[in-house]
Structures are given as structure tokens and as C-alpha cells.
Amino acid sequence: MTPLLFTVLVFAISVSAGLLGSLLGLGGGIIVVPALTLLLHIDIRFAIGASIVSVIATSSGAAAAYVRDGMTNLRVAMYLEMGTTAGALSGAYLAGVIPVRSLYVIFGVVMGYSALAMFRKRHAELALAVVPADGLADRLALHSSYVDEAAGREIEYRVTGSRIGMGLMYVAGVVSGLLGIGSGALKVPAMDLAMRLPIKVSTATSNFMIGVTAAASAGVYFARGQVDPFVAGPVAMGVLTGALGGSKLLGRLQSSLIRKVFVAVLLWVSLEMLLKGVR
């Protein structure tokens, strides 16, 4: 393969990863890493280095559009980022201690669980109007509203479970720091199921937070020499392009459709992870 063909292929794969990633609130790293290593036989360390950059690209690219459209809950995002960055720090530290093999297994189990939990709620189109009272969420004024294009009206929602949410975000941050991914797959269910944010707000807010989580680990990967510009360059360009397209689609899609696609992707990835850990 010539370097030119390589660049074009990596770019094309990354466009699809960015599109899917921004629709699902994932960083796209989960798609980029297996594609680069399995299809193009790139060293896993370079794939992860490119992935972490693509994670930032997806997050920032899509987040710009979501924030402008008022889909992102900025206050929830800033509050939860304390958990994700602290987690990413711990994860970067733990990376040298925990065997990667058992990580894959933990990751697979957690993802499988979130997929099943979301599947049980697959018919819910809008968030429930009544949520348990949460004093901390009141004090931080986390409640908000967004305009749902598919439903054609503004939907108000209240936030709950702000403490459990923070704990789950810490875990998501640890996973992100350890595996070099954005771990949006853990962030979306935490906000959707534990904090009762509407799925579209969860997706948009997750996208917004992923960049900060990934930035916490990206410097380490750069210093270690895992960010190869010849790999990460086309990945970043492709993922950015895909993410910008995906964020335009999200407002128009039905929430229940997003949820079903999300569940399928989660199950597939969790199976891949388990296999990698057990083999």
C-alpha cells in the first residue's frame, strides 16, 4: 500500500467513525481503534494515540453545534467534569498497575450492563415529567429545557441523582484515562438512566464533556510518542468531518431510534472487549 492510499483509507474509515460517534455520543475511538489495528495492521499504541486525538475532535466538533442549538446542559457538564477529570488522572496513574487484560473484561461487563439497562427503556421517547427531588441539583440549578425538533416543542426537564452521577463519571474518567477512549458509552447511560436527563440532552452533554476528559490523557500520549502524525492526521480530519455531519442529523432523528442503534453498538463492542480480555 502506498502512503497516499493509506492516508485516503484512514480518512474514509474515520469519517464513518466520526458520523456514528457523534450520533451516539461516543468519541469514535471505539470504532477507530479496531478498524486501524484489524484492517490496516497499525500498531495498537499508535491506534490509541490517534484515537485519543479523534476523541477530542468528535467532542469539540459536535459540541460546537449542540451548544449553539441549546441541546447541551452546560451546568451539568461543568459539574460532572470534576468527576471525569479526577477519574482520568487516577486512570493515567493506574494504567501501569492494572493488567490490561482484566480491564477489557471490566469494560465489557460494564458496557453490556448499560446496553441491557437502556434496552429495557427502549420505548421511552421523552423523559419522565416527575423525578425524585434532589437538593444538590436544585442548589446548583441544574434543571433546564431544550427544543426537540422531532417533537416540535420545548421540553422542560428536572435533574436528579447528581451524587450517583458524579460517582459514575469518576468511573468513566478512570476508564478513559486507562484505555485512551472518551468513554461516552459510560457517560450517556449515567446521565440518561441515573440522572434522568432526556436522551438527546445526555448525548449532547456527553459529547461536550468527552473532549475535556480526553485532553486530560492526550498530553501523556503525546509525550510518550504515541501520537504519530501520519496516522493521527488523517484520523483527526476524517473524524471532524464525520462529526460535523452527525450533529446536523441528531435533532431530526427519533429518540427511540437513537436508543436502539446505541444498544446494538454497545452490545457489539462489549462482546469484542470480553473476547479480547479472555483470549
Binding site: 470534576m82 477529570t85 488522572l89
Partner: peptide, 25 residues
Amino acid sequence: RVFVVITSIVLTLLLVSFVLGRGGG
């Protein structure tokens, strides 16, 4: 004020991570 503190904590953690990255990298 509460969110000034919250975002400052996030910024501090990020900067710490870059310093740690250089040390550990």
C-alpha cells in the same frame, strides 16, 4: 460563585494532568 469554583477545580485538574504526563511520560 459556586460554578467559578467548580470550573476552576476542573481547570486545575487538567493542568495537573499535563504536568504529571510530562513527569510520567
